[in-house]
Design a protein around this nucleic acid. Structure first.
Length: 287
DNA sequence: CTCAGCTCCTGCGGGC
DNA sequence: TGCCCGCAGGAGCTGA
C-alpha cells in the first residue's frame, strides 16, 4: 500500500493522537512482523513520550523522550488506525469507544489522552524496531537510503551522477531506495508518464533536460498525492493510510488498455512486467 | 559492483 | 457456489 505520500498522510493523521502524548502501554499481540521485535520493546515503549513524529522515506519515526526512536514501516499492507480520539472533542461524550480487535491487529498503542493507535498488517511485510535516536542514520534499515525526493538535495544533477553508466531500466533505478527515497511502483509509473520517459529506457541514457523534467515530475506527482491524501484526512478517525482521492487521478497505473490522457495522443496504456512487477505506460508518448 | 529473480505473507477478484 | 490462479502499493537476500 504505502509509498511516500501515503506514509506522509498517515504521519499527519497520527499527529493529534501521538505527538506530545505518552504511550501508556504498547500492546504487542505477536512478537514479530517481518523481523522479531526487540525482546524488551514493550517495556521500552511503556510510558515513553512521543516528542516528534517524523518521516524518512517510507519509514515513520517516533522520537521518544529517553533518547530512543521507534521505527515503523508499513510494508505492503500495513495501516495505522486511530480510535478514541474523537471522544475528547465531542461534548457530552465521556467514554472512549474503541472498535473490537480485528484479525491482523498486531500492535496497539494505548495513548495518553484516550486515543488508541492500532497497527494492522495482514501480510506482515511491515517492521518495527527501536534505535537510539543519535544512531538512527546508521541503523541497518536507514543506512544507505537516498535523498528525499521533496528535499533540496534531489535534483537533475544528482540524478545524473547516480544514473551515469547504469544500464538498468529507469523504472528499476527509481524503485531503488538508495538512489531516491520513498518511491514505489505507483508513483514511479506516474512520474515516468508525466516526464514522457519509457520505463524500459536505460537509466544512464537519459539526457540532462529529460532528467530535469523527471525530477520535476516526481516532485509534482508526490506533492499532488500528498495534497489529495491530506484532503481525505478530515475525518482523522479514518486516517489509516488507504489510498486517498489521488487514486482517481492515476494516469497510467492500473489503467491497462485505457486511452492515453495526453491531449492529442492516440496511444493506449500498456502493462509490461519488469523485475516481476507491473509497469504501466503509454508507448506513444513515453520514449 | 550490478542486476535479475526469489522470497516472506495474506487476501482479493476473475475465470471456470 | 466453490475452487484455483494470478496478482498486489516493499524490499532484503542470493547467486550469477
Amino acid at each position: 500500500m504505502p509509498e511516500l505520500p501515503e506514509v506522509e498522510t498517515v504521519r499527519r493523521g497520527l499527529l493529534p493522537a501521538m505527538e506530545g502524548a505518552r504511550i501508556l502501554r504498547a500492546e504487542l499481540r505477536r512478537g514479530d512482523l517481518r523481523w522479531p521485535f526487540p525482546p524488551d520493546m514493550g517495556a521500552r515503549l511503556q510510558g515513553a513520550r512521543v516528542m516528534q513524529l517524523r518521516r524518512r522515506s517510507k519509514y515513520l519515526l517516533a522520537d521518544l523522550d529517553r533518547g530512543e526512536t521507534l521505527i515503523v514501516h508499513l510494508g505492503m499492507s500495513g495501516r495505522m488506525v486511530i480510535s478514541g480520539l474523537a471522544a475528547a472533542h465531542v461534548p457530552g461524550q465521556f467514554h472512549y469507544d474503541h472498535p473490537q480487535i480485528e484479525k491482523h491487529d498486531h500492535v496497539l498503542f494505548h495513548m495518553e489522552g484516550g486515543a488508541r493507535v492500532t497497527f494492522n498488517d495482514p501480510r506482515r511485510f511491515g517492521a518495527m524496531d527501536l534505535c537510539p535516536t543519535a544512531a538512527l542514520e546508521g541503523h541497518r534499515l536507514m543506512a544507505g537510503i537516498g535523498p528525499e525526493p521533496l528535499g533540496n538535495t534531489f535534483d537533475a544533477t544528482y540524478l545524473r551522477a547516480r544514473l551515469q553508466g547504469r544500464r538498468t531500466p529507469i523504472k528499476a533505478a527509481l524503485l531503488d531506495q538508495r538512489i531516491v527515497a520513498g518511491l514505489g511502483n505507483i508513483y514511479v509509473c506516474e512520474a515516468l508518464f508525466r516526464a514522457g520517459i519509457s520505463p524500459v529506457r536505460a537509466a544512464g541514457r537519459i539526457g540532462p533536460a529529460r532528467l530535469e523534467r523527471l525530477t520535476q515530475a516526481i516532485r509534482d506527482t508526490l506533492h499532488e498525492a500528498i495534497e489529495a491524501g491530506g484532503s481525505s484526512l478530515r475525518d482523522y478517525r479514518q486516517a489509516n493510510g488507504e489510498l486517498g482521492y489521488f487514486q482517481h487521478a492515476f494516469r497510467v497505473y492500473g489503467r491497462e488498455g485505457a486511452a492515453c490522457t495526453t491531449p492529442g495522443c492516440r496511444g493506449q496504456v500498456r502493462r509490461i512486467v519488469q523485475s516481476a512487477r507491473s509497469s504501466f505506460y503509454c508507448p506513444q508518448c513515453q520514449r
